[in-house]
Amino acid sequence: MSGTVTAVSSNEAYSFTKPNRDSVTLLTGLGVEGDVHAGVTVKHRSRVAKNPAQPNLRQVHLMHEELFDELREAGFGVAPGELGENITTSGVDLLGLPVGTLLRLGDEAVVEITGLRNPCLQIDNFQGGLLKQVVGRDEAGNIVRKAGIMSVVARGGVVRPGDPVKVELPAEPHRPLEQV
């Protein structure tokens, strides 16, 4: 299974959106160089308030570009970086991958998937009604989160739009993604 990086984004300040860049540098065990969410311990404000010493399982946020197409069909205009993701991909079913999957990004960088992003109410401040589009329920009533996946940097390197994404599944049995 493989795909493509379509955009990379980072922001040194806390902000819901992240500007697109020509490239980002992933730092092993830390995240995106210069990004506010990089670090060994958690940086997301809600998680810092609960326990600032917990490990940062949300170093790099990835989102599938196909979600933007789905949102456009529902009447929302969303572009890469606007939902706070660091890396936008196409051609890979990110939400269907198990915990521990390695994503090889470009020539060097590797991230390990830790879980699903759990979007907060800020998403409705960006565009009213958007939260219901990215968090819903399936036919059985289970919560479905579509706002991307979170990962940690297993090996650093530069990532650029156009770089290949190669998927390496972990040994079975696979564990489905849960919110982190």
Rank of each mutant, 00 (worst) to 15 (best):
H61R: 00
L26Y: 04
E139D: 15
L121S: 11
K166G: 15
V111L: 08
P173R: 08
E112P: 00
L83W: 04
V135A: 06
L130I: 09
Q59V: 01
G115V: 05
G156T: 02
L130C: 04
I87Q: 03
P119I: 06
Q122R: 12
V36Q: 06
L121P: 06
T25P: 01
R104L: 03
V99Y: 04
L169P: 03
M63V: 08
N86W: 00
M150C: 07
G129C: 04
G34E: 07
A53M: 15
A140C: 11
E82M: 09
L67S: 06
P176W: 11
V144M: 09
L121T: 13
Q59M: 01
E172T: 14
V144E: 11
L131I: 12
P98R: 05
P176A: 14
A147E: 02
P173N: 11
A140Q: 14
H44W: 12
P52H: 09
D124A: 05
A109W: 00
T4M: 15
T41W: 08
A38L: 00
R47H: 13
A171L: 09
L27M: 14
V24C: 01
L131P: 01
R45M: 14
R155D: 10
R58F: 01
V134N: 00
V48G: 14
N142G: 10
E65H: 14
R137Y: 11
T89W: 08
V153F: 00
L83M: 12
N118Q: 09
K43D: 04
R117Q: 09
E73M: 14
A38T: 01
V167L: 13
A154T: 08
A147G: 03
R21I: 02
F68D: 07
L169K: 07
T114F: 03
A13W: 06
L130M: 07
L97T: 04
R104P: 01
L62K: 00
G81Q: 02
K166A: 15
V158G: 00
P119H: 06
V135W: 02
N51C: 13
K43W: 05
G91V: 03
L57V: 03
G162A: 10
G31L: 02
S2Y: 11
R175C: 09
M1P: 10
L121A: 13
T4F: 15
E168K: 10
R72K: 15
T6I: 13
D124Y: 10
T17L: 14
K132W: 11
L26P: 01
V36F: 05
L130N: 02
L26T: 02
V99W: 06
S23D: 12
V48N: 12
G148S: 01
E65N: 09
A49L: 10
R155G: 07
G136F: 01
Q54G: 04
L57C: 03
A74M: 14
L67G: 06
P55H: 05
G75Q: 11
R104V: 04
V8W: 02
E108S: 05
T88R: 06
V167G: 10
T88L: 08
R117Y: 12
P19N: 09
D22V: 13
A154S: 15
